[in-house]
Write a protein that binds this DNA or RNA. Structure first.
Lengths: 341, 341
DNA sequence: ATGAAAGCGCTAACAC
DNA sequence: GTGTTAGCGCTTTCAT
């Protein structure tokens, strides 16, 4: 059985409150008493019981991270970053996968599990603007990714619209005029897909290019397999195109695979750009030009904002932080070939 | 403030113990009392306080998962699976990243954090056979991946040696004789690298091929970047080779990238095989032949074994479960080209 | 079938 | 400076 405060007190020959004082660095403890207590703690290998501390303090020392799924490299790399930052603050991370499913996302907000953490980092995908009310929760909550809800909820966002616009303009600057989009979600407005398509349209418009429905292909979850299927659909349509914008890197890489199998030269015949800058993008053949949405930045800021909320007493005003993006040019849009570039 | 047992009791007009009885489905509760209590629970939105329950019961309802890093696709996909299975059992997962570092792995075994979960799934990388004693812990522990320690610790292993041998034999069967290895860890015996190299050597021997040091290239963490660098080293050595065995898929894909940049044709000039069967292997160009080590199986079995240990009272004997592997043939060793094959 | 009481290990107010 | 005391919300034992 693990040692308790009382055990330590007994060994040190003091009351257990004095032990507590030592642990919490209370000022009023005589140096030698402190030393004696420390020795007893060492001797017994005492560690404070976290359940008891939680019960008493109402804090768990954990934060939740709810993402669609770790099998998507973007979220895996995000989780890596979140765990690393949280760890530096002595906080553990409890990961939940929602599958991007609206029902499960609502559950993540209200479920029993919220009791097991002091706050939640939430990357929603399935929620719509009708669900804004569900985000009015009584625990610290920071939304990741999109800036889609108006409620008084903290956000750490990427510049979806602006970045997608820049990505499209990168293609246009390379002389492309018939730019296909892979991974749209029909009718969606406020999710990543909707926002990125909006950026795409804005770029076209700014450059006097017409928006053509037949160049836009829907895809479900943003996995390679769906990027590949969407590209096959596009080819089946028989429309001409000279560039592809994959709404994330995995879609773009799935599409790339299909293009190459059909003997398209990339980037000569078709240029491709992705979104996310996952590690793999550097190593594909050809390497993938993409948008770095500042994932590390997002993770770091989000964790710190959440911890601040958890620690803070005063209900600070809603905050919204945006991480800067940048276009990472690689071979798929014509950058010279270098390993790991 | 959240409702407590007493609040419910008051609303239902019973003692709070009766409420507890209802919650725990104790048999001796009059049906109508039960109904009244249930109504009160609903009305107040009562949920049992987990900290209090933990303090009392000694259970947290969480399990830990310690892996090197989620940025490695294998571990991300493993974590996905573990979380999914644990969720089905009503258990949450707390992820720790060790970076494969020995010190941090030892910390994961002894740290304060062990109190926050009821048991640990542990995928060690940096620990050596000298550390076997550290695995003698007083909480439920299941080791994932290698079968490297003799102590009375449960393992769910993959067939590293046998699978690596089969991978090598797959290359030999394709007529390859000069098979390079990417990702070895010099001097290692019991880790994944050591075991897979052992399987490689066994295959060579069985087929009368000589082991050649100059074909084996070390690499640090098993990321693409290190696979690429190792391949460059190999090329710099100027030795002839007609096949490459990447000790994991990411190494193989990094190596593939470099080979292609140097105008090697894959698989005509050089065949490549990886290990892990991450999603990406299906979509690379060419797609990557690899070993499916039964990751889903490992995750499912490991979680269930751990939960059984946690729930069990009697100290059951040490168990070791092996998940079957299979070679997944794709283009990089000459399978015909198909999308997503 | 229901209730009273003790205590899990800790924290924090308040006394000494 | 140090000690006493009263809970946090729950489970469990024992009585009624």
């Amino acid at each position: 059985m693990a040692a308790t405060l009382r055990d330590v007190a007994q060994v040190a020959g003091v009351s257990f409150k004095t032990v507590s004082n030592v642990i919490h660095n209370h000022p009023h403890v005589a140096p030698e008493t402190r030393a004696r207590v420390m020795a007893a703690i060492d001797q017994l290998g005492y560690r404070a019981n976290r359940s008891a501390r939680s019960l008493r303090s109402g804090r768990t020392g954990a934060i939740g991270l709810a993402v669609p799924e770790l099998s998507l490299a973007y979220f895996a790399e995000l989780a890596d970053e979140v765990i690393t930052v949280a760890d530096a603050h002595g906080v553990v991370v409890l990961i939940e996968q929602t599958g991007g499913d609206r029902r499960r996302e609502l559950e993540a907000l209200s479920g029993d599990r919220r009791q097991m953490s002091d706050g939640l980092l939430f990357s929603p995908l399935g929620l719509g603007s009708d669900d804004a009310a569900a985000l009015q929760v009584d625990f610290p909550l920071v939304l990741l990714g999109e800036r889609i809800f108006d409620g008084p909820v903290d956000h750490v966002t990427m510049e979806n619209v602006e970045a997608a616009r820049a990505a499209t303009e990168h293609l246009i600057a390379g002389g492309r005029r018939r730019i296909a989009v892979i991974g749209a979600h029909e009718g969606e407005r406020i999710g990543s897909a909707g926002l990125r398509v909006a950026g795409y349209r804005a770029a076209l418009e700014a450059h006097g290019l017409d928006y053509d429905d037949s160049l836009v292909v829907d895809a479900g979850p943003w996995h390679r397999v769906n990027g590949a299927e969407a590209m096959q659909q596009l080819l089946a349509r028989g429309v001409a195109f000279d560039a592809v914008f994959g709404l994330n890197d995995e879609l773009a890489l799935g599409a790339l695979r299909v293009l190459r199998m059909h003997e398209f030269r990339v980037p000569q015949d078709v240029a491709i750009i992705g979104f996310d800058d996952i590690d793999e993008a550097k190593y594909s053949l050809p390497s993938l030009t993409t948008v770095d949405p500042g994932r590390r930045e997002i993770a770091r800021i989000a964790v710190e904002l959440l911890l601040e909320r958890i620690g803070g007493s005063a209900p600070a005003p809603r905050r919204e932080l945006r991480s800067p993006f940048r276009i990472v040019q690689r071979e798929s849009t014509g950058a010279p070939v270098r390993v790991g570039a």
